[in-house]
Simulated scan of single mutants.
Amino acid sequence: MVEKRGLGHWMTHAGLILGVLVICFPIWLAFVASTVSQPEIVRPPMPLLPGDRLIENYSKALFSGVNAPVWLMLFNSGVMALGITFGKIVISLLSAFAIVYFRFPGRKLFFWLIFLTLMLPVEVRIVPTYEVIAGLGLLNSYTGLILPLVASATATFLFRQFFLTVPDELAEAARVDGAGPMRFFFDILLPMSRTNIAALFVILFIYGWNQYLWPLLITTDPSMNTVVMGIRQMFPSGDDIADWPVIMATSILAMLPPVMVVILMQNLFVRGLVESDK
């Protein structure tokens, strides 16, 4: 059977293509700006095709910086994002597993107390959190960057809802076969949760990568700056002139890791969001 494609079909695709172009055009301009010289940017009209300074500008961006080289800031952002992501996923998996499969007094109360922490984001509790981290001597450290952000009520809620859909007969069969709680968790629940884990990995990695306020507060050593902080520090103060090609090159470099994570995990990410029959 040949499907008829009417005007609505083509209009839908035209609208999607137009939307992609509108979203991608600023990114294209940032890439072009990272490949030309400073006079070409400040002198209108701005070029729409890449220039011949790509290697020069990106080398300058990677190995120089206002307070620290960009490659080091990218490394710091990567450590922080991965630490937050893995920490959130591990803690959320274990807490959801305990709430669903262990019968103990007040387990529903504990779940709702965890869920209520959604009302207390980092910005609300930032002063007491800073006091705790400073008291523990964790300023200017990866542990200080990661530890206050590893708890996730949202991920705990999502894993709990998924575990509730797992048939009770599966847990009973594992118990009959002699599998303990952790064996059931690692051999059965964890493989079944891979699409959910992949979807949360993408979301949480981007969340960790884009953190600005918390790293800005607890890092005074330039070698611990993240790339998001570095981009802000590249903007001049007073009458200084911004080095726009280097700033744009740094922005493109900062955007690449999250984009690569989304591209590499897009299939699992979509399945984790829309798959309903577990």
Rank of each mutant, 00 (worst) to 15 (best):
A96Q: 03
D221N: 14
G180N: 01
M192V: 10
G137M: 07
F157I: 12
D277N: 00
I23E: 04
G208T: 09
E40G: 09
P26L: 03
W10R: 00
M229E: 00
A151H: 07
A98I: 04
P191D: 06
V90W: 02
V259Y: 03
E123M: 15
A68E: 06
T117A: 06
A81M: 13
S276Q: 11
A81F: 08
S37R: 11
P181Y: 10
P191G: 10
L116F: 07
R125G: 12
R5T: 02
I146Q: 10
P258F: 08
A61H: 04
F97M: 05
I203N: 01
F157D: 09
L256W: 01
S59P: 00
D239T: 13
L49S: 14
F25E: 14
L48N: 07
F184I: 06
D177I: 10
T85W: 10
R125Q: 06
V70P: 00
G6R: 13
E56W: 15
T165F: 01
P39W: 03
V127Y: 08
G65D: 13
L149E: 00
I218Y: 08
V262G: 13
E3L: 15
G19D: 12
K108P: 02
S77P: 12
V176F: 02
W214A: 05
Y212G: 15
I146A: 11
F63H: 15
G83M: 04
V227K: 07
L256F: 08
V36S: 06
T156A: 05
F205M: 10
I263G: 03
A134Q: 15
Q266K: 14
A198N: 04
M80F: 10
P222C: 03
Y101L: 05
V22R: 01
S193P: 09
L164N: 11
F25T: 15
L136R: 01
I17K: 00
F269W: 04
V132W: 08
Q161A: 01
L200K: 05
T129L: 02
M260L: 15
A33N: 14
V2S: 11
F111D: 11
I252C: 11
Y130I: 05
M73A: 07
A173P: 10
D243F: 02
F185W: 02
E169C: 03
T220Y: 12
L7K: 14
V32N: 04
V90Y: 05
G137K: 13
M46C: 10
V122A: 12
L158A: 09
S95Y: 01
I55P: 00
D52G: 12
L21W: 08
I126S: 07
V70E: 08
G208E: 02
M182N: 00
A171W: 13
Q211S: 08
R43F: 06
L164W: 05
A68T: 07
F31C: 11
L29R: 10
G106M: 01
Q38M: 14
F201A: 08
V22W: 00
M182E: 12
C24M: 15
V202G: 04
A68W: 00
S95T: 15
I23L: 13
L48I: 12
T85A: 02
L170R: 05
I55Y: 01
D239W: 09
E123P: 09
T117P: 11
F86C: 12
V202D: 07
Q211E: 15
